[in-house]
């Protein structure tokens, strides 16, 4: 069983997140591996452990700080780490990003075939959830997204997905791109031995040239969308906070009535 997991370096949810010149501000200090990618790493490790053999690759795309995301994956127990970095990738939209990741996946797949690419259900900075589908289409692999449970048998992956209108069971032949939700598993904590080993573990550094990707297809040049303005929303004004001394329910109701909401 050979699995590649995509991980993203994102601003810590608990930090003050912001934009700088139309880009999400990223720095090594308050950045982290996208929390939902921990579920993807966990799913991959569990499948390999259940199979009793196999390897897990963690792949990230981003500037120099993004290496922190694959180091985190190494701490959790993945076997190999790849960091794709190239100045031309900055400002890529989801399709540019999918082009780069697909090229990296193909490079690994050519060395020895992969069974699965597993991603998180969304990155907690952009939250668009578009990448898994774009990646499956780029690779021309089958897709099984939003898995809250998954299993692999007989050359197929079977997932459960909970959609608002229905619960589905979906079966896709391998190789497949699977995205997992935070219901899929409970991510493990890194242990001391792995933390120490992760510091020294090699991280393959690949550029666009290594992947044979034309710089004009990605980055700002290839982007179909551009952020033209980003500004912090003003804090709410006239906020009211009361402590219940016996009539808070009435006051709350009066607030709603006055606003025409009740």
């Amino acid at each position: 069983m050979r699995i590649l997991v995509t991980v993203k370096h994102v601003p810590d949810l608990q930090s003050q997140r912001s934009f700088t010149e139309g880009r999400v501000t990223r720095s090594g200090d308050d950045g982290t591996m996208n929390e939902l990618d921990e579920n993807a790493v966990e799913a991959a490790l569990q499948l390999v452990e259940a199979a009793g053999e196999g390897e897990v690759y963690a792949l990230t795309v981003g500037g120099p700080d993004a290496v922190a995301a694959v180091r985190k994956a190494l701490q959790l127990g993945v076997h190999h780490a790849i960091h794709v970095s190239d100045e031309a990738i900055a400002d890529s939209d989801v399709f540019g990003t999918a082009t780069v990741i697909a090229a990296a996946v193909r490079k690994v797949h050519e060395e020895a075939p992969l069974d699965l690419v597993i991603t998180g259900m969304a990155a907690l900075d952009g939250l668009t959830s578009m990448l898994p589908t774009a990646l499956a289409a780029e690779l021309d692999w089958s897709q099984a997204t939003l898995a809250s449970a998954l299993s692999v048998a007989d050359g197929e992956v079977t997932i459960e997905r909970h959609l608002p209108d229905a619960h589905e069971t979906l079966v896709a032949p391998l190789p497949a791109v699977v995205s997992v939700t935070d219901e899929a598993n409970k991510p493990r904590y890194p242990n001391f031995k792995l933390i120490m080993a992760a510091r020294k573990a090699p991280v393959a550094q690949w550029s666009l040239a290594d992947l044979g990707v034309d710089a004009s297809a990605v980055g700002k040049a290839g982007a179909r969308t551009v952020v033209v303005d980003a500004s912090p929303r003003p804090a709410k004004e006239n906020r009211v906070k009361i402590t219940d001394t016996g009539d808070a329910g009435t006051q709350l109701a009066d607030f709603l009535i006055e606003k025409g909401l009740a």
């Binding site: 009361i242 402590t243 219940d244 808070a248 329910g249 009435t250 006051q251 709350l252 109701a253 009535i257």
Partner: peptide
């Protein structure tokens, strides 16, 4: 916009009655 420090078991029934 409007926050109550209190028990929902006290506040909601009173709000429902008032509405």
């Amino acid at each position: 916009d409007f926050g109550v420090v209190g028990s929902l078991f006290d506040v909601i029934p009173q709000a429902v009655a008032r509405i």
